[in-house]
Design a protein around this nucleic acid. Structure first.
Length: 409
RNA sequence: CGGGGUGUGGCGCAGUUGGCUAGCGCGCGUCGUUUGGGACGAUGAGGUCGGAGGUUCGAGUCCUCUCACCCCGACCA
């Protein structure tokens, strides 16, 4: 990508209606555009990051047997009445609209009903289980108040997987796998060290649900972390009884603010029951399917990475989610695109700052945009090229051949 | 939904007890000089002050209504 072709440009100052660091940097860097409170469009750079995150999640979900599909955004009132979640008095954050003929439809705010309803048609026998369908899609929640930049928005892109298992044992087996997959995701996204498996309230079918909470002052949640054991409990379940259950000692817990980047929980038969989602077991008897739910908000994850890793000069993307691997900056009087072409031919993702503007602006922009490898071409370097990592201070000079070898790794 | 605050060129802001042609910085166009950390000079374009109504000789400034945005709280499958 030639930066001269990128229609976005950076902002020196933050828009006044954004207080949170994640939204400030993402807007200043040209990653997102605020449409209204709690609603953001993703610009070219932002979409690339979102796609990278999606790729990581997809790989991890597929690795544990997930099968990707796409549920509709419009939702059928009758389906939701089965689980008693259509009524606005019960679920207060629905967006609803009407067809021309007056039929009410809802806009997805979660996916349990859609999946339960669809899978009912395909699950008949124990031979059909277990299955793990999931999707990425935009969902809508009419939050009373959106806040914290892209942490809590009214429209957001998420991944939801639902597990359909024959019994508790089979469910628990998958649940543990999912837990591990989630940890892989956050590790690969560069926030593994700050993300804690956190015990939270479980609802009617299990003692606990599990949240993945990333430590940051920008978070909305309070958690209590046992750093040695590497786990945490959410404030909402931080009681003596729970701590005893988990074998945690109050003295080892530290109170922290955190943001929930993912959560998984066991649903038991909460949905299979109202949807009459049953299968016939080996003995010819009907049994209810045991379900689980596994969600991640991609925008929130993206915001969290920004929030946690940024420095005072801008964003610092981990290579795994960066929009490009390399930011090539040409400071020479006579610019040419030779190195850009070489990088392109070697399939190294590169954004090339070919703009005819001052060196200072290019360097400042590179820091703000936060791409991991920075290559600088300059008249004072001759045929050599300078390499600097966004998250390091030292600069090294290499020949073109050498730097290509490094970047190919 | 309760409380507090803010709306003035693309972005960030100033605008006094109502008074003349609404300013400043950044950004943008043109010319020239610059070229390793958001360069400098000259010159130019761009706003009708969130919206509607009202008071007044006169409203960015006062009043009423309204919309949007931000913060705190409540809420958060």
């Amino acid at each position: 990508m030639r930066q001269s072709q990128l229609f976005t440009h950076t902002l020196k100052e933050s828009p006044k209606d954004e207080v949170s660091l994640n939204a400030q940097l993402l807007i200043r860097g040209g990653y997102i555009y605020k449409e209204m409170a709690g609603v953001y469009s993703f610009l070219p750079l932002g979409l690339r990051v979102l796609n990278k995150i999606e790729g990581i999640i997809r790989e991890e979900m597929n690795a544990i047997g997930g099968t990707e599909m796409r549920t509709s955004v419009f939702q059928n009132k009758e389906v939701w009445e089965k689980s008693n979640r259509w009524d606005d008095n019960i679920v207060n954050n629905w967006f609803k609209t009407k067809l021309k003929n007056g039929t009410e439809v809802g806009l997805s705010f979660t996916n349990e009903e859609a999946y339960s309803n669809i899978l009912k048609q395909y699950i008949n026998s124990y031979k059909d289980l277990p299955v793990y369908p999931y999707d990425f899609k935009t969902i809508f929640r009419n939050e009373a108040r959106s806040k914290s930049g892209i942490f809590r928005s009214r429209e957001f892109y998420w991944k939801a997987l639902y597990s359909f298992s024959k019994d508790e044992t089979e469910h628990n087996e998958f649940y543990e796998k999912a837990k591990q997959a989630y940890q892989n995701i956050f590790k690969r996204a560069g926030i593994g060290d700050l993300t804690y498996l956190t015990f939270a309230s479980g609802g009617s079918f299990s003692k606990f649900s599990h949240e993945f909470q990333t430590l940051t002052e920008a978070g909305e949640d309070i958690i209590y972390v046992d750093e040695k054991k590497g786990i945490a409990v959410n404030k909402e379940v931080n009681t003596d009884e729970v701590l005893k259950d988990l074998g945690l000692n109050k003295k080892n817990l530290v109170e922290k603010k955190a943001v929930e980047v993912g959560n998984i929980f066991s649903l038991g038969t909460k949905f299979s029951d109202p949807f009459d989602l049953k299968y016939t077991n080996k003995e010819g008897k009907e049994e209810l399917v045991v379900m689980g739910s596994y969600g991640i908000g991609l925008g929130r994850l993206m915001g969290t990475i920004v929030e946690v890793l940024a420095d005072d000069r801008g964003i610092i993307w981990p290579e795994t989610v960066a929009p490009y691997k390399v930011h090539l900056i040409d400071l020479r009087k006579k610019q040419d695109d030779k190195l850009y072409q070489i990088l392109q031919n070697d399939k190294i993702e590169v954004i090339y700052d070919d703009r005819e503007i001052s060196a200072g602006i290019k360097l400042k922009d590179a820091d703000l945009i936060g791409i991991p490898y920075r290559l600088v071409l300059s008249d004072k370097l001759g045929d050599k090229v300078e390499l600097k990592m966004r998250n390091e201070d030292n600069i090294k000079v290499y020949s073109i051949e050498e730097v290509i070898e490094i970047l190919k790794k």
